[in-house]
Design a binder for these strands. Structure first.
Lengths: 122, 122
DNA sequence: CCGTATCCTAAGTGATACTG
DNA sequence: CAGTATCACTTAGGATACGG
């Protein structure tokens, strides 16, 4: 079983046109999954997110949030209050996206020892 | 359901130490998943793989194969024949890895229209 | 509080040519 | 057939400072 036969680009010409490729590369960037995972716990403001992730610069936070918003995975709602407040939250699409992503993360955890053993080999 | 609570790095300090991060980045690189998907159909030689994927240079093929082998996802067996033959094939770990990866690819295909719609928005 | 602008470095990728 | 070496280019990512 689990012979999921999704037609991954064999002899593909345009890698940008492959829907899977853009998704996979988003997963591979440094902060997207981290941010999505945090937003899975609720909505957060910009600085809250910044403080929640060690090593994350505001520059990359902005860029990542914009990218996730552009893909429709998160929403950005501005509350014109004083001080200003901007809430980031997962969309339905973002929540559904998190499922296969977390499955992959779970695989990583489950096979961590296998990976470490393989990498330790010369 | 689907409340997979894998503890993704909140306030994580060392991203390299996170087992999920290295896996996600491997998924995000340009050729790993493509090669793994091809090897899912059987074992292949170096040039066979090279010819199977349009746009893939031998340089990147080598590098990707070495990385996948180092992670224990594929095996490399040398047949000292004339001409020389090297077979690349999925390991058991590689096959199990492909499951969550393909699930992610399937998500991408299923939500392709959502993504395109979101990206089309200004 | 919520960003943007600028500059810089490191890493990923590709073209091309060469080797056992 | 199965690679490696070199170079050049592009992009991701971080430091720092400034703006609404």
């Amino acid at each position: 079983m689990s012979t999921a036969t999704i037609t991954v680009p064999a002899t593909v010409s345009d890698h940008v046109a492959c829907p899977a490729t853009s998704v996979l590369r988003r997963v591979g960037d440094k902060w997207s999954v981290v941010i999505l995972s945090i937003l899975a716990r609720g909505s957060y403001g910009f600085n809250e997110l910044d403080r929640s992730v060690e090593g994350l610069s505001r520059r990359m936070l902005t860029r990542t949030l914009r990218a996730l918003e552009q893909d429709g995975l998160i929403s950005r709602t501005i509350h014109p209050s004083v001080p200003p407040r901007v809430d980031y939250a997962l969309t339905g699409l973002g929540r559904s996206f998190l499922e296969p992503v977390l499955a992959l993360g779970l695989w990583a955890v489950e096979h961590q020892s296998d990976l470490e053993a393989a990498r330790a080999r010369r």
